[in-house]
């Protein structure tokens, strides 16, 4: 039991540290809120596999050990699926993809272009507190701009409403 608690608390420590790190991060990017104003319905169906995905994946995080600083996580609030059996763009096996999602506008430092990123939650399994938790809020808005809101369970429209983890899927150019 003690071992379990140690692991849990260690995971939660990482979670809160990551939250603090994310909150302390500086972005200074342009905003394209007007173009990203609506929730994406059926986010995965709309998500193309874009060429820069591979480049982005190869590029890895912004800095070693700083997964949350990776450019496409600029408005993420969640546990990373890539640490839980999924990838940047896929949910872990046995989970389901959220039918709706929130959207961020993030700048890829490699080409200095702004991309629309759909943050889908993966659903129907317990969250894993030992995985990396990221909390970034560039362009985030409260629930009155629901499609930009990241403090809500985006599994809300699924049959399986339990929150598992979050992916960051590039769905288009913001300009």
């Amino acid at each position: 039991m003690t071992k379990f608690l140690d692991r849990l608390l260690s995971g939660l420590d990482r979670m809160t540290e990551a939250k603090a790190r994310g909150a302390a991060r500086r972005h200074g990017r342009r905003s394209f809120l007007a173009r990203a104003g609506g929730a994406i319905v059926g986010g995965v169906a709309l998500a193309p596999i874009l060429p820069f995905d591979r480049r982005a994946n190869a590029a890895g995080a912004a800095a070693a050990g700083d997964e949350c600083g990776y450019w496409r996580h600029c408005a993420i609030d969640g546990f990373l699926c890539q640490d839980a059996g999924g990838t940047l763009t896929s949910c872990p096996p046995g989970s389901s993809v959220s039918a709706v999602s929130w959207v961020g506008t993030c700048t890829n430092p490699d080409d200095n272009k702004d991309y629309l990123v759909s943050y889908n939650d993966c659903c129907g399994k317990p969250l894993i507190p030992m995985t990396t938790f990221c909390y970034n809020s560039k362009g985030e808005r409260p629930g009155y701009r629901m499609g930009l809101y990241n403090d809500v369970n985006w599994c809300m429209a699924n049959e399986a409403k339990g929150y598992h983890c979050t992916v960051s899927v590039v769905v288009g150019l913001a300009e």
Partner: peptide
């Protein structure tokens, strides 16, 4: 201190 786009939830 040092607000930026996305810092509105900073501690």
């Amino acid at each position: 201190k040092g607000a930026f786009d996305g810092s509105h939830k900073n501690p």
